[in-house]
């Protein structure tokens, strides 16, 4: 494997910026479509793009990802086709799950995104088994398991960490701490400030990283993934970020403290990344505009593809229940 810079300042963030912009544009298209009644609402990851892009770009092709209901960032950063994703959200035949999943549980096995579940904490319960397969069948790669701060309050989080530590399973646990557990603030639900604090009681090394700084996330995730590979043991990375839109579209967010949200909006991961690149001279305004154009073209094509895709045939109702 080619050595990667572990220093955030040496990372070329331009491709990361483009991925973040693609995720943002994809989810904004869904929000607009859902407001217009044309696309079902989803759990967006607006504001959390750096956390997804930074970690996914630290993984190799052999690594396997488990994720949850808020998965657009993981899927797009992994290379999923926005057209097939949108088709899935819209319940169409060309969706990655033939239109049976909708937005909440999209798996793309060919990209190594497996067993996506919207049962909060289910990804944590299944991750040890996936890692056990890798370890026992001698496959290369590690398991990256994305979950929220809410999932960390489920028993499956604690059972999963205990077993992974006990059985030496190569799992990179990635907690996206976005401060919200649907309509409950993490402060009302967690006995500790950080999920990473819980990991140490299982003997699992852990770190909390600024989840809105894509280069910092990538550097931390690379180091964490290397540690999992080298030690064949779990590691927990907590990305400290914020869900700037509602839990699910539409959501008026009347329960959100405006000052807290404003503070996080001022640290928008995309603006942070772009401003830093512009200031460093690594990106000029016309290059930035070209990225925006490419992203807009892809999302436009994705929407056209999804809308042209037919609904599943009626006989799909009972197919694939049993193997």
């Amino acid at each position: 494997m080619t050595p990667h810079p572990a220093n955030p300042h040496e990372i070329d963030a331009r491709p990361l910026l483009e991925q973040m912009l693609l995720i943002r544009a994809y989810e904004e298209a869904i929000v607009a479509g859902s407001d217009a009644g044309a696309i079902p609402g989803t759990c967006t990851s607006v504001g959390q793009e750096a956390a997804a892009v930074g970690v996914v770009n630290a993984l190799g092709a052999d690594d396997v990802i488990l994720t949850n209901h808020r998965s657009a960032g993981h899927l797009l950063a992994r290379g999923a086709d926005p057209g097939r994703l949108l088709a899935e959200v819209m319940g169409r035949r060309d969706g990655y799950c033939k239109g049976r999943s909708g937005s909440l549980h999209i798996s793309v096995k060919e990209l190594g995104v497996v067993l996506t579940s919207t049962i909060v904490g289910a990804e944590l319960s299944m991750a040890p088994g996936v890692a056990l397969s890798q370890a026992m069948l001698g496959w290369p790669g590690i398991v990256a398991c994305f979950f929220g701060d809410g999932a960390a309050c489920e028993g499956s989080f604690h059972e999963s960490l205990n077993l992974a530590a006990l059985w030496n399973l190569p799992i990179l646990y990635v907690c996206e701490n976005n401060h919200w557990q649907a309509f409950v603030h993490r402060r009302e639900a967690m006995s500790r400030e950080h999920v990473s604090e819980w990991a140490s009681s299982y003997g699992i090394p852990a770190q909390t990283v600024d989840g809105n700084d894509v280069a910092a996330v990538l550097a931390a995730a690379r180091a964490a993934a290397e540690q999992v590979r080298a030690s064949c043991r779990p590691y927990l990375l907590e990305t400290w970020t914020y869900r700037t839109r509602g839990h699910f579209e539409p959501d008026d967010q009347s329960y959100v403290d405006p000052a807290e949200r404003a503070a996080w909006l001022a640290r928008d991961p995309i603006t942070l990344c772009r401003d830093r690149l512009l200031a460093a001279g690594a990106l000029n305004p016309s290059q930035a505009a070209a990225i925006d154009d490419r992203v807009a073209t892809r999302i436009h094509a994705a929407r056209a593809f999804a809308e042209a895709s037919p609904y599943p045939a009626a006989d799909e109702l009972t197919r694939d229940v049993y193997a």
Partner: peptide, 20 residues
């Protein structure tokens, strides 16, 4: 295994889906 039926079953599910 630990006395934790949830993770026993979840681990079996994850392993079954990926080759064991």
């Amino acid at each position: 295994t630990p006395l934790a039926e949830g993770i026993i079953a979840g681990t079996a599910v994850g392993a079954a889906a990926t080759g064991l």
